[in-house]
């Protein structure tokens, strides 16, 4: 990240309308700070980061602790299954007897893993395709954009469910891993981002300093990574932030339907495990859903704020 930023700054300096080198990002930060909604998003994300980093401290009980049964959480010695929220368990307990609150805290790390992991893969594909299509143009652009359109039309969510079910059947040993879910979400989510990045590359490519460096014989590699990439970086940051939210949402939906990794402890999985008891013990399903919503909201608000801050053309 730091090296990216350094690169961006040196190149922004050469931007025709660019102004001073550090000020581009500093200005964006100043604009972001003024945007209360974006700061709220940043705050939510920050709280979740703390929750994930210090989950043992934030949680009330150790992971997978059956209240009243497991040695670490004996309480009064009776099994607390589907108990409503109370003093010992602020968000109630689920059917097994887990403290809903503690399990949600332990699920935070998985949510970040899914969001950031899937987004990493998505943005990698999207950046490569978007840069290549936008920069090389011609048949390359044509081919890549047609491929993108195919992926846009594919009912991705349906295929995701089929993929996951097939893998569970084929390789039962692997079912505890959420990496498969992460991989499939990442591998299918890139088309929208690729299109936007390509559009931005097409715009930036016309900047005079890039035309100039092409004329003085700079290599494609150099132009792509020293000039084009840093100038579309702001778009990539915005898209990535929003994609993290989308990935978390998709995983939650997949797991809620029962196609997630059964051994994993994601919020979606928690909802699924409690869904059959929603009438007696709504807290087991609803509270994980609340946390999915909060985290998705945090990233969405932040992403939209970043878009306004990094792309001042949208605001006057």
């Amino acid at each position: 990240m730091t090296s990216d930023r350094k690169m961006a700054q040196t190149t922004l300096e050469q931007r025709p309308a660019g102004g001073h080198r550090v000020s581009q990002w500093a200005l964006a930060w100043r604009r972001l700070k003024k945007n209360k909604v974006a700061i709220a998003g940043l705050g939510i994300v920050g709280i979740f980061i703390v929750m994930a980093a210090f989950d043992r401290l934030v949680a009330l009980y150790p992971p997978k602790c059956i209240l009243g049964v497991s040695p670490a959480c004996q309480l009064d010695g009776r099994l607390h299954s589907n108990s409503p929220p109370g003093l010992a368990y602020p968000l109630g307990t689920d059917i097994t007897g887990y403290d809903v609150y503690s399990e949600i805290v332990y699920g935070t790390r998985a949510a970040f893993l899914i969001g950031v992991g899937a987004t990493g893969l998505t943005m990698l594909i999207a950046v490569v395709i978007g840069l290549a299509a936008g920069y090389f143009g011609g048949w390359m652009d044509n081919l890549l954009m047609r491929l993108t359109e195919v992926f846009l039309v594919i009912p991705f969510f349906l295929l995701l469910l089929v993929f996951l079910q097939v893998t569970i059947k084929l390789a039962p040993a692997n079912t505890g891993s959420i990496w498969l879910v992460v991989f499939v979400i990442g591998a299918f989510s890139w088309p929208g981002a690729a299109r936007i990045i390509r559009g931005e590359v097409l715009r930036v490519r016309e900047f005079e300093f890039i035309a100039a460096s092409r004329q003085i014989g700079a290599s494609s590699y150099r132009i792509l990574f020293r000039h084009l990439f840093p100038n579309v970086l702001h778009i990539i940051i915005v898209l990535a932030t929003l994609q993290i939210a989308a990935s978390i949402l998709t995983e939650a939906a997949v797991s809620f339907l029962g196609f997630g990794a059964p051994g994993s402890n994601t919020w979606g999985q928690q909802m699924y495990n409690s869904a059959n008891y929603v009438e007696q013990a709504w807290w087991g399903t609803l509270f994980p859903a609340v946390f999915v919503t909060l985290m998705v909201m945090g990233f969405n608000l932040l992403g939209n704020g970043l878009r306004d801050a990094l792309d001042p053309r949208l605001r006057e």
């Binding site: 859903a289 919503t293 909201m297 939209n304």
Partner: peptide, 10 residues
């Protein structure tokens, strides 16, 4: 913006 983040399952 908040509304776009509320999933239908919630």
């Amino acid at each position: 913006l908040v509304g776009t983040s509320i999933p239908i399952f919630f």
